[in-house]
Amino acid sequence: MNIFRLAGDMTHLASVLVLLLKIHTIKSCAGVSLKTQELYALVFATRYLDIVTDFISVYNTVMKLIFLGSSFSIVWYIRHHRVVRRSYDKDQDTFRHYLLMIPCMLLALFVHEKFTFKEVMWTFSLYLEAVAILPQLVLLQRTRNIDNLTGQYVFLLGAYRGLYIFNWIYRYFTEPHFVHWITWIAGVVQTLLYADFFYYYFESWKNNVRLQLPA
């Protein structure tokens, strides 16, 4: 475990905590895309199939359980919680997830490292994670005023992806390795999707104004 990987995981964890904090304490999911959250739940469910077959470390297992538990509970909150569900921007959150899921599944069936159920599912989860933020970014663009917690949530998610790239560069030079093109390309694509958001996030921070994405 290197510092970039640990920082990446902690940033990812922080993003989930920020979102849970918003939902749980403010009892609001305004500006949060249910579509993105459902895609993340699917990402973790398909990626962590190995939680029952392979033991890597206590850290690894605990983190997997946290990401699985948090993603499914966030989806539950937005869909079913008596108060939270009323703040959901249903009419704005119109991205159709199957437009992302089907191409990712097809791509995973054709482009993978090994043709086994677990490996294809793992590859599917990488492709899907790369694009899962899109419904959230579209929703942010439609939202006039983005509240601080939602902005921080997306910022932390983007930072997590960026740190993972540094982690791979570090591992590439320090460990005996295979070149995992699929992971690298999916990861870089995912990080690039945040570039625009980052630009406006820093602009709003620098100018001390509320974050707003141009339509």
Partner: peptide
């Protein structure tokens, strides 16, 4: 190596 390196990541 049975376990490819990326599989220990989250």
């Amino acid at each position: 190596l049975e376990q490819p390196m990326m599989h220990d990541e989250l």
